[in-house]
């Protein structure tokens, strides 16, 4: 059933809310969706495909945890392992998309901070 049920194409960064309340992931289910990642130069967005697979679930006395693995295209260097606790399982896809998007924003975020750090050399 990998990737067959819930491929979400052309998902826009500003419209992640559409992912809320979807059907929960099934065990070993793989879904693909697209998130946007801004380029360091403002005004440009790039669509990036993300694959999320529910590796396992586990119930603890205090919470239920869902363990996912995210992979993307070559812009992310490694696999991302995500444990989601609490919340509605139907929202997991949106939460995973937010996490993936945050990773994709890293470059622009770091550039912003680096620019600021140059103006504040008193921390060295």
């Amino acid at each position: 059933m990998n990737g067959s049920k819930a491929q979400l194409q052309n998902q826009n960064l500003s419209d992640l809310g559409d992912l809320r309340g979807k059907k929960p992931f099934a065990r070993d289910e793989r879904r693909r969706f697209v998130v946007s990642s801004p380029e360091p130069v403002a005004g440009k967005n790039r669509q990036t495909a993300v694959a999320a697979t529910l590796e396992r679930t586990r119930r603890f006395p205090t919470h239920a945890a869902r363990f996912f693995e995210l992979t993307t295209d070559s812009r992310l260097p490694a696999t991302i392992r995500v444990q989601l606790n609490h919340g509605e399982p139907g929202d997991d896809e949106k939460r995973l998309a937010e996490i993936a998007e945050d990773f994709l924003q890293k470059n622009s975020f770091n550039a912003e901070i680096a620019e600021h750090a140059e103006k504040n050399l008193d921390d060295v």
Partner: peptide, 16 residues
Amino acid sequence: EVPAFGEWDAVVQAGS
């Protein structure tokens, strides 16, 4: 102290 990160909503680990 809650096992399996029970007090957190998400745990994210990339690469190694």
